[in-house]
Amino acid sequence: MKYEQEQEVLRFSFEGEFDNLSVMRIKDESIALIERFRPKVLKLDFADVTFVDSSGIGYVLARYQQLRKWQGEVVLCNLTRLNQTIFEMSGIFQIIRYEKSEGRK
């Protein structure tokens, strides 16, 4: 996981499979970064993610709950068609916004 913090936006970029093993590797670091920066917006960039499973969806929901403590927003960015379908089936877009193409540096 890579991260960038700019003003009130914190961006996490992921790559490869977003499954139980990868979530376990990044969970503690991402929680700590969110607590440190307390962003108004957390953007999760999935441009380089090849696969998302239920653990990945759970990770996103947990970050949503974490940011709700100070009225922060989570935004999913750059999902592949397959990953977008997986997230749509979960119903997550009822509470989390999706941006099809988030500008990347």
Rank of each mutant, 00 (worst) to 15 (best):
E29N: 12
Y98S: 11
D45F: 02
R104Y: 01
L10H: 05
F14E: 07
Q7T: 09
E15I: 03
Y3V: 04
S101I: 11
S30M: 14
R36I: 04
E29C: 04
E4M: 02
D53H: 09
F93H: 08
F18I: 03
Q7R: 15
F12A: 04
E6K: 15
L67F: 03
S54R: 07
V23I: 06
G56K: 08
L76C: 13
L76H: 03
S90H: 06
E99N: 08
R81H: 09
N20H: 14
K2P: 00
L61V: 05
L21F: 04
A47E: 14
V23L: 10
E35Y: 02
Y98I: 07
V60Q: 04
F18G: 10
E99D: 13
Q94W: 02
Q7N: 15
G103T: 13
E15Y: 07
V75C: 01
E15V: 02
Q65Y: 05
E15G: 06
F87V: 02
R63L: 12
Q5E: 13
G103M: 01
Q94V: 00
K69R: 13
L21T: 09
R97E: 15
D28K: 14
S55K: 09
V23W: 10
K100S: 11
L21E: 12
N78A: 05
E8R: 12
R81N: 13
K2W: 08
Q94E: 15
A47F: 03
L44H: 06
T85A: 12
A62K: 09
R38A: 08
S22D: 03
F93C: 06
Y98L: 15
I95R: 07
E8N: 15
M1W: 02
F12M: 05
E8Q: 15
D48F: 05
Q5A: 11
L76R: 03
K2T: 08
R68F: 00
Y59L: 03
M24Q: 14
G58T: 11
F87N: 08
I86F: 01
L44G: 07
S22N: 09
I95A: 10
N83C: 06
D53I: 04
R11S: 13
Q65W: 01
T85S: 13
R81K: 12
T85P: 00
D48Y: 10
T50W: 01
A62P: 09
S30N: 12
Q65V: 02
S55V: 01
F12Q: 06
K43W: 03
R104E: 14
N20Y: 09
Y64R: 11
G72F: 02
S30T: 15
F14M: 13
R63C: 08
